[in-house]
């Protein structure tokens, strides 16, 4: 009953000499929203493709819905909903036909497919566009349609690869809200993202991947507690040499990070720390106390170097 929907042990994916996924262990339980976080090239999408049964693992053990993807691909995919990173909707077809034709691939009778399409279009707020073609839809609408298509077989497990990448803030919030509703309905969500706010909003549990490995695992709260402090003080000084302040601030924070334009102090209590800064008359030109976020964890674990 409580066996995990996804169970990976020592999962490896190689492409020639390149190892995209380098031995990861993952358990995703029914009803949870699970996230894969990481910079570009961390191995998130390769992992998702293995879970989606369109990419055979090179090594290791992978069980999905209690089945073996190497053998039971079609049977597993019948119970998955997949929302790929790039929309692959049918631009020639109408919004509704995109759902009804896709439903047929699952052997869903036409009548049921039509009813379900109507329901799902309602759910993703596209009912008014049901008979319009896909091409003129906005990015956010296309994304919602792709999500609706992933739900057409009433899946046990929905895979979302960077569900809101490239969307404007309004569109993102609408997608998040819909995904949150799905989660409340008990649908198990597995998503990849490099947006920290997305992970904090949606994920019960997540793993941070870097270079094909899992570097941290836990709930957003746990990860912040483990790898960051409760609060962060961001200080800017008028001089170009932010670095010279690092020594003066030493001992006042758990960890200090010097960036080209500001200095970050990782502390338990930001206001206390800032008061201490002022008491030592270090007088920064601006100061901001904020709660530590998953972004701090992420940057701490995967570094600030740009990955393309």
């Amino acid at each position: 009953m409580n066996s995990p929907l996804i169970q990976a042990r020592g999962l490896i994916k190689r492409f020639g000499d390149f190892t995209a996924v380098d031995g990861i262990d993952v358990d995703v339980r029914a009803g949870e929203a699970f996230g894969f976080l990481g910079p570009n090239g961390a191995g998130k999408s390769s992992t998702m493709r293995m879970i989606g049964c369109v990419s055979p693992p090179s090594e290791g053990e992978l069980r999905i819905l209690g089945m073996d993807p190497r053998r039971d691909g079609p049977r597993i995919r019948a119970r998955l909903g997949v929302c790929p990173q790039l929309d692959n909707l049918d631009t020639e077809l109408t919004v509704r036909e995109n759902l009804t034709t896709y439903a047929r691939f699952f052997g869903i009778p036409r009548k049921v497919a039509r009813a379900r399409a109507a329901e799902l279009l309602e759910f993703v707020q596209l009912s008014e566009r049901a008979d319009s073609k896909v091409d003129p839809l906005s990015g956010g609408m296309k994304r919602r349609l792709t999500i609706a298509r992933a739900l057409v077989n009433e899946p046990d497990l929905v895979l979302l690869d960077e569900p809101t990448t490239g969307l404007d803030p309004q569109a993102r919030h609408l997608v998040w809200e819909r995904l949150f509703r799905l989660k409340q309905q008990g649908v198990t969500l597995v998503l990849t993202t490099h947006y920290m706010d997305e992970a904090e909003q949606l994920c019960d549990r997540l793993v941070v991947m870097d270079g094909g490995r899992i570097v941290a695992e836990g709930s957003p709260r746990e990860l912040i507690e483990r790898y960051s402090t409760r609060e962060v003080v961001e200080l800017r000084f008028t001089t170009d040499e932010q670095g010279t302040y690092a020594e003066k601030l030493a001992g006042m924070a758990d960890r200090i990070e010097v960036l080209p334009d500001r200095v970050l102090m990782y502390v338990a209590d930001g206001d206390d720390a800032l008061a201490e800064v002022h008491r030592r008359s270090l007088s920064p030109s601006s100061a901001l106390v904020r709660r530590s976020s998953l972004e701090d964890v992420f940057l701490h674990l995967t570094g600030r170097t740009l990955v393309d």
């Binding site: 369109v54 019948a78 631009t91 691939f105 052997g107």
Partner: peptide, 14 residues
């Protein structure tokens, strides 16, 4: 361009 086959491959088709 249209990635139709990839969408089909994600469904329970061989």
């Amino acid at each position: 361009w249209l990635k139709v086959y990839f969408a089909q491959a994600a469904a329970p088709l061989r």
